[in-house]
Write a protein that binds this DNA or RNA. Structure first.
Lengths: 192, 192, 192, 192
DNA sequence: AATGAATGAGGCTTCATTCAT
DNA sequence: TATGAATGAAGCCTCATTCAT
C-alpha cells in the first residue's frame, strides 16, 4: 500500500468510525477523541483530514446523492417493478445497521445546514417521483383518485418512517424486509 | 397569584423555553443559560426545579404518555372511525410547530435513555393496536391478508414518517392535514 | 466585603496576575491556567470576567491615557520645571517593576491593535509636546537650532529607550532615577 | 548551483521567511508551517536545518554580534568621528524595515533565553563603550561632569529608544536618519 | 536531502452544576 | 425561593516534532 492509498485508507477509517459513533451516541455526544480512538489513529490525525468536527458530514452523503435518482428517469413500460427494484437497490447500498441509520437521521437533524441539504434532496426526489406516478396513473397502475404529488409525499414519508422506526429498534431484523413490507402495503393503497 | 401558583408558572416558563430551544438548536447545543435567559429567571433557578438538564425530558412526555392510549382500549363497534378520531386528538394535542416536532424527534434520538423510553412507548402502542386491528380484521374492516402486527408496525411507521418529513419542512402547512391524508392512504391499503 | 466588592476584587486579582505573568513570560507564553492559578481562582472564573484571553489587554491601559497629558496643556512661565515634574509623576504612577514594564512593552508589540493604540497615544503626546517646546524655545530655555518636532521625537525616544533597557534589567534599581538622569542629559543637549 | 550552495540557499530561505514572519506576527504566533510555506519547502525540511523552532534565533544575531564591537577597540585620536561612523555602519547592516526591527525587539522579549542573551550583549557593549567615553572625556571631547558608565547607559537607551519608536512607525522614513539625529542631540548633551 | 503524514501534549473555551448570599 | 459567582471537567483544536518513504 503506497502513500496515497494509505491516506485514503486513513480517511475511510476515520469516516467509518465517526459514522458508527454518531450512530451510537449522536453527533454532539461523540467526541473527536472517541472517533480517533476507534479509528486507531492519533487525535491530531483527525484534523489533518477534516478542518473541524462538523466537516465530517460533508462526506456522509446522507441519503445518497441525486446521482442514484437518475436511474428512475428513463423507465419505460410498467412502473411498479422498476420502483420496487430501485427501492431495493437504494436500501441495499444504504446504511445497513440500525446504528448507522440512526446516525444518518441524527446528522440530518443536527444542524440547519444538513437539514436543508436533506430537505432539498427529498424535494428533488419528490419532483422526480411525480412524473413517474402520473405515468403510472395513466397506465392504470395507480389510482387517479389521489393527486400524484400527495402520493409522492407519502412515498417519502413511508421511506422515512420505516428508516426512523427501524433505526429505533423496531420491526424486522433486516431493514430491507421491513421496507419492502411497508411499500407493499403502500402500493396496495394505490390500487385503482 | 399565590406562592404555589407562582411556582407552577415558573416551572412552566422553564419547560416551555427549554422545549422551544431544543426545537431550535437541539438538546446538546441548547445550554441551561439559554433556557433560563429565555425563561427570564436566574440560572440557579433551573436547578431548583430540575436535578439536571436531562430531567427536563421527564416532563416533555414526548409522544404523550400511555395514558392517552387508554382511550383506545374500550372501543366497541366499528374501529375505523374511532381510530381516525383518536389520531386527530393525538396530533392536535401534540407539538404543533415544525420546530417542536423536530425538537421532540431530536430529543428522542439524543440520548440512550430517551431512545429506549421512546422505543418502549412505541412497543406499548403497538401492543395496544394489535387487538384493535385483529378486531377490525374480524369485522371485515381490514384485510386479513396481512398479519396484524405488521399492520401495527406500519401504522407507527406512517405516523413517524409523517412527523419526520413534516418536521423537516415538507408537506402541508398543517401537520394534521398531512397526517390524515397519509392515514387515508394507509387505510385504503388495508381494505379487504 | 459584599458581593459587588468581591467581584471587583476578583477581577483585580486576575488582572494583576495576568500583568505579572505577561511580564515574566510574555503574552503568548502565558496561559490562562497560569493566570488563574496565580490569582487563586478556577480557570472558568477567568472567562466569567473576560470573553477571551486577548481581552485582558483592554484593561491594561499601557502608558497611561491621554488624560494624564492634559496636565501639560496649561503651563505658564518657565517650561522645564513643569516638564521635570510631569515626568516624575508620570513615571511614579506607571508600572514600577522591571517585569511590569516589560509586560506593557510586550503587550504593545503583541498585536497590531495595541500597537496602533500605542502609536496613536505617542503621536498625541508628541502633538502636545511640540507647542511646549516651541514656547520653551521662544523663552530661550531650549535651543532653536533643532526643530521642535524633532526634539519631541527624541524626548519620546528617550522615554521609550529608558523604559526598554531598564525593563531588560539594565541601569539603576529605580526606574525614576534612571529616567531623570537620562532626561537631564537630554535637557543638556537642548541648551541654547 | 552545486549541492553545498543549494543547502546554504535553502537555509537562507528558511531564515529569511522566519524573520519576516516573526516581524509580522511575533515569535509564538508564527508557526513552522507558515515559515516553510513562505520558504517554499516542506515542513520536515525545517527540522533538517534547525533542531527546534527556537534555534532560529541562534542565527538571527539580533543586535549583531560582539564581533562588530571589536572595531571600536583600537580607536586612536579623536573619538567622536569614529563613533559616528561605527553607528552608521551598525545601523546600515542591521534590520532595515520597521517590521524587522519590531521582530527583533519582539524576539528579544519573547523568551527568557533571548532576553538574557540580549542583556548580556548590551552589557558587553557597555563595557566596551566605557573606556572609549573615558578617553573622550580625557581628550575634552565629552563632559566629565557625568560619569562614563551613565553616559554609556544613555547611549544604549538612545539606541534602543530610536529602534523601538521607529519600529512602531514613528519618526523619519529612514532609520539611519532618525538615529543620527538622535545621536547628534545626544552628543550635544555631552559637550563639556 | 526532501517530503508530509502521524503524533499527542497542551492551549483556549464552554457549560452543567454547586453554593453562599 | 431566587440569584449569579465560582467551579473544574471535558471538549475542540493547534502545532512543534518525529519518522517512514
Amino acid at each position: 500500500m503506497n502513500r496515497e492509498e494509505k491516506k485514503i485508507a486513513t480517511r475511510k477509517k476515520i469516516l467509518d468510525s465517526a459514522l458508527e459513533l454518531f450512530a451510537e451516541h449522536g453527533y454532539e455526544t461523540t467526541t473527536v477523541h472517541m472517533i480517533t480512538e476507534r479509528a486507531g489513529v492519533a487525535k491530531g490525525t483527525f484534523f489533518n483530514y477534516f478542518d473541524c468536527k462538523e466537516d465530517v458530514f460533508c462526506d456522509l452523503q446522507t441519503f445518497r446523492a441525486t446521482l442514484e435518482f437518475e436511474k428512475l428517469k428513463d423507465i419505460r413500460g410498467p412502473i411498479l417493478p422498476h420502483v420496487r427494484e430501485f427501492l431495493m437497490e437504494f436500501v441495499r447500498f444504504g446504511p445497513n445497521s440500525r446504528q448507522l441509520v440512526r446516525a444518518v437521521l441524527l446528522s440530518d437533524l443536527s444542524n440547519e445546514k444538513s437539514l436543508s441539504n436533506q430537505r432539498k434532496m427529498l424535494e428533488e426526489l419528490k419532483e422526480m417521483l411525480i412524473p413517474l406516478i402520473v405515468e403510472a396513473q395513466n397506465r392504470g397502475e395507480f389510482t387517479s383518485a389521489i393527486p400524484a404529488d400527495m402520493i409522492a409525499d407519502q412515498a417519502i414519508q413511508t421511506y422515512m418512517g420505516v428508516s426512523f422506526t427501524w433505526g429505533m429498534g423496531m420491526g424486522d431484523d433486516k431493514l430491507i424486509t421491513q421496507m419492502v413490507a411497508s411499500f407493499e402495503l403502500f402500493f396496495r393503497g394505490l390500487q385503482p
